[in-house]
Amino acid sequence: MALEVILFWICSVTSVVAALFVILHRNPILSALALLASLFAVAGLFITLQAPFLAAIQILIYAGAVMVLFIFVIMLLNLQKDPERFAPQGVPVTLRFALGLWVFIGLSIPILWTAFTWAMPPTPGAYSVSHLAELLFDQYLLPFELTSFLLLVAMVGGVVLAKKS
């Protein structure tokens, strides 16, 4: 059990620090790599939450494909460092920061306030990947079939938008 706790604290600290880096860094490639580190940390958390299949998918799709797409776009548009971190014009920075903080407080009050009591404590190793797959293909069949339309739209949209040369 000690391993799970250590893994949790390592992954959560890296994910928060990496998320901060994503926001604060001026060079887009470095913030993309910071987002990559945050995705890895969340994948590690998925493993402690007994979802290894989702951890592998997170790494395969998010870290392996979406972030590659981001880095391709950054290299394609050859973006340099931003001149300044938070643009002064528009709504003052402190107000925006306060709004973000207000979101955080709004979220964390209900979480901390309710004492979560669950009927059964989580049984480790209760569910395996094949349970997930069976659930996917009988109870959630409709969303599964709709995703193919979503992918078709994404493909066609990407081609139409990018080939408008």
Binding site: A65, L69, L76, T147, L151, A162
Partner: peptide
């Protein structure tokens, strides 16, 4: 833009 198109197709087929 060819590299970008290939990356989109890669993403969609990877999800498939």
């Amino acid at each position: 833009l060819k590299f970008y198109l290939i990356a989109i197709f890669f993403l969609v087929f990877d999800i498939e």
